[in-house]
Design a protein around this nucleic acid. Structure first.
Lengths: 167, 167
DNA sequence: GAGCAACTATAGGCACAGCAATATTCCCTG
DNA sequence: CAGGGAATATTGCTGTGCCTATAGTTGCTC
């Protein structure tokens, strides 16, 4: 085992990426917790709220988050218990059920988002000159297009529903 | 809830970063699994192997990974059971014990690392022109220096031990 | 030198996520 | 229109990690 392997530029590069990602995640999690949300709950709230009708089928929600379908079932259980969203049966397909954001859920997201954006600005985008930020984002976009993580799990881009939202 | 919030450049920027990070993590995990390692086990193996004597106190190992001390206890349990490392008592401080990489552990890391580096090159560093990669890394470094994730958990940089490795 | 605070590792309880199995429903084919 | 295969959500099981409590050890203070 050659010790110099650890100084390989590839290792340091990937370490840097993960370190930044982990650091920001930790800050986000702390701010979410102030509003009684876990990171995954925030993600679910974002996904649903940006979708037409503030709703999404369980399967589609799983595809847009990094959760499995069973994971979605349980997260939705918790959030429904907390009143942040509710289940709604799909009349045209009795297999499907929708998760719909409630007014309380929208309100919670409204309370959480400004702080979230502030943290991004303070520790990420605001740390770089505009040109430097653009360069970084261009690089990331390039890598993203290549690695194309599964079904764009965690992507910011909206994902078309497997079936049209006919209900 | 204004729908335009989701198009905020800060949101898209952070989404991009996390998407890249998650995508690469998934590829790494798949390759680790081919060699019978979990991501955290690989991390532990890397940390120990790069340390003097291929060993580290449990506490220091926890500080260098993103694990808590109890988490380290259990990971080391599993890896000791699999023969990748072993515990060693510290003669000068009977509270401390060291985790030491075994020959089998070194061998396992040797088998895993080339593929790991190949993946980084294929999906990350190799996707960018040298100047573009430099720009991206500069940006990341800048953010890293600002956010300074806790006790540099997950950092590629070696972390000085809390106490000198006197045994 | 006795006592106390700090440190170290571990064990138990809890939360949470994934995988596999299951029940229900839908759709297509003959 | 009957039956089989695909799709959907849920549940049990398992694995894993964190938090807290606990036991042992060390070093400092009086």
């Amino acid at each position: 085992m050659d010790k110099n392997v650890f100084d390989d530029p590839r290792i340091t590069a990937i370490g840097l990426l993960f370190e930044v990602s982990a650091g920001l995640s930790a800050r986000f999690a702390a701010q979410f917790e102030e509003h009684g949300l876990s990171p995954v709950e925030f993600e679910v709230l974002m996904r649903l709220t940006r979708s037409p009708g503030h709703q999404l089928r369980m399967t589609d929600l799983a595809a847009q988050t990094s959760l499995s379908t069973s994971g979605v079932t349980r997260v939705v259980d918790r959030m429904e218990r907390d009143g942040l969203l509710r289940r709604r049966a799909c009349p045209s397909d009795r297999r499907s059920s929708y998760a719909v954001v409630t007014a309380a859920g929208l309100s919670r997201l409204d309370q959480t988002l400004p702080g979230h954006l502030r943290i991004i600005e303070e520790w990420f985008t605001g740390q770089l000159a505009p040109a430097q930020l653009d360069a970084l984002l261009d690089g990331l976009r390039r890598v993203r297009d290549a690695v194309h993580p599964g079904a764009t799990a965690g992507s910011t881009e909206p994902v078309p529903a497997g079936r049209p939202a006919d209900c």
